[in-house]
Design a protein around this nucleic acid. Sequence first.
DNA 1: TGACAAATTGTTATATTATAACCTACTATG
DNA 2: CATAGTAGGTTATAATATAACAATTTGTCA
Lengths: 165, 165
Amino acid sequence: MQATVFSPHDHTHCVSSAISNAQNLCVERGVRLTPVRQRVLELVWRSHQPIGAYELLAGLVKEGFNSAPPTVYRALEFLCTQGLLHKLEGINAYVGCCNPDTPHQGHFLLCKDCHQAQELDSQYISLAIKLSADQHGFEIKRHTIEIVGICQACLDKPKKLESKL
Amino acid sequence: MQATVFSPHDHTHCVSSAISNAQNLCVERGVRLTPVRQRVLELVWRSHQPIGAYELLAGLVKEGFNSAPPTVYRALEFLCTQGLLHKLEGINAYVGCCNPDTPHQGHFLLCKDCHQAQELDSQYISLAIKLSADQHGFEIKRHTIEIVGICQACLDKPKKLESKL
DNA sequence: TGACAAATTGTTATATTATAACCTACTATG
DNA sequence: CATAGTAGGTTATAATATAACAATTTGTCA
């Protein structure tokens, strides 16, 4: 099976490579990855799970940024617009995008147990959606695909201790 | 093209048939479609668009129900659990389900212009999602599919007046 | 350089969405 | 009618998000 967020990996590397990739992209696009924006991006990537706006805010404040909610929401809006993050609508949380170079809408598997989010890259899903929309003469602007369930790692885990209590 | 919410139709009939269908279903299932629950269901169906919890609350209060937010959220939870409504996560709003007899997850086209929601019934989307999840050994509990864009009716409409101003 | 325009962030206040906790009233059943 | 379970009422507050305006920084170009 391919590597996923559900399997162990060097997350520090994920973070640093995501940041440097973002820096390059922003230079190419002539937009500014300001300190606040970069810090938010790092905080999202550093989290091993989707993370909410107010948790990010707490992170910023802890690091000396003099921030309030609008600061975070603006940074999140910028980062989502640039395709560097995706928002998970079902849980009001944000995750880093693994492939921001080619802008796209995210499709996600969300584990109810470990709370990790795995971004999918399925041509079939995109195609099926396109077909359905076309049948209705509907012009797609964006879409949200969030699949909630239990990931393989959690399915394989031994049952919780509570069963022994 | 098939009839959709985007095309004109007798909405009064939609409402009354949805309610009587719901009444039958609840009897069959041995659950109670109480006055508050039925009223919320009617208000959702009567709206020509997805409708939010607080707007529903206002409707209840206007009709003499002595209600507060928990009342509405409880009714919505019941109705969603029974498959009588779907929640649109992207806009925190609710729509009636056209086929509550066979429980399912909704797939929606949401028009940015007229704000109507069309529920899809695409085997392809369901299949594509199932395939992707299976590839990752992921067990699906539920999913959210929301496609935002412009519906055919709105695409066909003459351009807005503002272009003449 | 200096001055202006545009973009970004700070700041305060508030809107919107949702739930916790506890109490009361109703409903079905024996 | 006693009572257990379900539903709704009530108050308070949590969690999420934005409006509006001021201050600051950045880029540009005369």
